[in-house]
Each structure stands twice: as C-alpha cells, then as structure tokens.
Design a protein around this nucleic acid. Sequence first.
DNA 1: ACCTATTTGTCCGTATGTATG
DNA 2: CCATACATACGGACAAATAGG
Lengths: 118, 118
Amino acid sequence: MLWRVDPRDPEPLYAQIAGVVRRALGEGTLHPGDRLPSGKDLAKSLDVNLHTVLRAYQELRDEGLIELRRGRGAVVIASGSGVSRLGAMVDELISQAERLGISREELVRMINEEEADA
Amino acid sequence: MLWRVDPRDPEPLYAQIAGVVRRALGEGTLHPGDRLPSGKDLAKSLDVNLHTVLRAYQELRDEGLIELRRGRGAVVIASGSGVSRLGAMVDELISQAERLGISREELVRMINEEEADA
DNA sequence: ACCTATTTGTCCGTATGTATG
DNA sequence: CCATACATACGGACAAATAGG
C-alpha cells in the first residue's frame, strides 16, 4: 500500500490519512468497489493508533467517498468527483436547511437565484 | 442546566448530548451568543467522559450551530451565520454539479426527490 | 511582557458492544 | 460459534489557543 504520514506535519494525522486515500481515488489507484485496508492493518502499517485511522475513514464516509460497515470494512463507493458525492452534499444541504427552518422551495429559489459563476 | 442522558439508551451518548443542546436551541432556552458549559463541566454534570461531550460539541459545530474555539469554549452562533453557511453550501453544491455536468434543473429535482426526513 | 489557568484538539491505549461473514 | 471490523466510551497525556491577572 506504501502510504505514508508524517507525525511532525502540523496537519493532523487523521486528515493526512484521509488525504492519501482521496489522492489514491483521484489518481485512479483506488476504484469503486475496492476495499480499503482494515483499520487495524492500516494503523499498524502507518504506525498510528487504530482510532486515528477510523477517524479518517469516518471523515471519508461523511464525504460520501466510502461506505463503512461493521464487520465488513471500508468500501469505495464513488470516485472523488462522483455523482454519489453530490447526493451526499444534497442530503447535507437539506438537513442544514431544515435545521434553519428553511423550506425546500426557498432552497430551490436560492439555487436558481445564484449567479452562474458566483 | 438540568440536562440528562441515559447510558442504556441505544442512541449514543454523544448524539444524546447533541440532541439536548439542539432541543434547548429550538425551545429558545439557548440564544445566539450564549456560551455552553465547558466540556469538563458538562461531562461532570452528565457523568460522562470529557471526550464524549467534546464529540457532541464538534457535531454541533459541523452543523453550524455553535462556534468552538480553544480556550474560549462553545458559543451559540448567530442565526444569520447559519444562513450564510447555507449559502456557502449552496455555492459548493452548484460548483460540484457544474463540474459533473449536472444542470440546475437536475439539481432541483434531486432535492425534491429526496426523502422528507433526511 | 509574562505567567497561569482554562478549554478545545489530537493522539494514544484499553475495554466493550454490535454487525458481518 | 467464532473471527473480523467498525462504533462507542472511558481514561490519560500533551499541544495549542485563549483569557485574565
């Protein structure tokens, strides 16, 4: 897997780990359906704690890049610029709007009123 | 503060904590500018670990409900900030969609077809 | 300018729970 | 039933930012 992280880098380790996975997705060395190493294995190979890896994985899951399930591991569900990521963003947007008491009609209006290059 | 969580509830403790804060915001017992108890204090009063409280706070921060800064604590964000954050999310979404060659009409359809609960 | 206390951020380790295969 | 793998929670340690004296 030859991934590396640097403990002296001011960027947090979990962010570095998420970064190398994102890069692998972008470069095409990871494809939809591929399984990422188990947290335990990757932690050992990077010489970091299991939690640090799992935190990185959860970040990637929140971004809609991987699916994370107990007993199964982490599976790539989209490329870095995929449509399912857009779906995740739509979900987040809707949740946020609901928290603010903003209806979908208003949300749609916001989108349509946004300038093309904005 | 009289907040309570239940360790036997299947809902994770950090989610319960985030929930009671959200409810306090919704009920108007917390207002923009108000400072939440420090993680240490709330952890003690709820009889949970400090990290559990901080995880709840970070979730609320990710939702745009509070601002979280070292040394200062957790402060309820002004409602206007929440809306402007929503605007930023809309911009991101539009950019991402354009990158994928997805039209705004299609974006709007995605939003309207999303399940109501999210 | 300095020092100290406070508070969140990260990381480690351990234990236990839960879903999957 | 058993092994694997993520999820949650606890605890401890140290770092970094902030606030106040």
